[in-house]
Design a protein around this nucleic acid. Sequence first.
DNA 1: GAATATTAGTTGATTTTGTAACTAACAACC
DNA 2: GGTTGTTAGTTACAAAATCAACTAATATTC
Lengths: 143, 143
Amino acid sequence: MSEKDDFDLQLFLPYLLNQAAEASSLAFTQIYKDRYGMLRTEWRVLFHLGIYGTLTAKEIGERARSHKTKISRAVAALEGRRYLKRTRLERDRRVEALELTTLGHSVYNELREEARRYDQAMSDQMTPEERDVLTKLLVRLSL
Amino acid sequence: MSEKDDFDLQLFLPYLLNQAAEASSLAFTQIYKDRYGMLRTEWRVLFHLGIYGTLTAKEIGERARSHKTKISRAVAALEGRRYLKRTRLERDRRVEALELTTLGHSVYNELREEARRYDQAMSDQMTPEERDVLTKLLVRLSL
DNA sequence: GAATATTAGTTGATTTTGTAACTAACAACC
DNA sequence: GGTTGTTAGTTACAAAATCAACTAATATTC
């Protein structure tokens, strides 16, 4: 390489964001994976239902920006573990209402506390102002 | 759900980072995928070699924090397209030096300019100060 | 210097994801 | 009220990522 190349890959935002996302998810992944044998989309579905109560697969997919096949499989897996139950809607029998079982709710509660601790530990690495800027920009970039 | 749940998934950093990373990579992915038929690890390897000149598969894996099988397959694919060439090292014949061909370099140059434009467009969505804070924090979180 | 351990890189089997085609239910149109 | 179009969700197949086992070369140890 005779020509000097001043492009800094480490600072290229899509790359940097991916690296940060991957690194920052690592330890949390271990928790839901090792402790509950869940996949990424599965804990996301679990959290959506834990937080919002009852949702349809489509609604979860829209909120989480995930494809319906991913959601479908995650729902099937969570149902198999008895973490959620489905109820077909009378007014439109294509749709099913999803909600957590008691078991699913207790798993969610545990994971949510882990998530709270985890997020707190990350926030402790920065000032409150920095955390605000970070959140604001990430939300903006997510749109 | 009788109990109110105040956990905000959208603000949970690992989740938010993933959403931002995914959204911000989307359009760039289209470029290297549709225009050059490359995969994520492939453009990363291409960029590493374009920037640093000559590297071994192991070195790329360390810098990009990717597993050696991913790198191995990406290198094979890039070699197949004549974007890079390998040279076994005399001093240690397990290792091979990787470097871009002329063709690989011209593809890299094009993609690098796309990346520059892309990053600029993202930076235009924030103030220079915000961009600095964002970069600093993402680098910190990547460790 | 022969036996054992490490290391760089590849290959194959399994798991997970992505894409596209499908079914079933509903809606709109004529 | 039958044809056409749309929507929610599933299934089947292809592409890709992960993990374990492997080969070949070098290092280490006795």
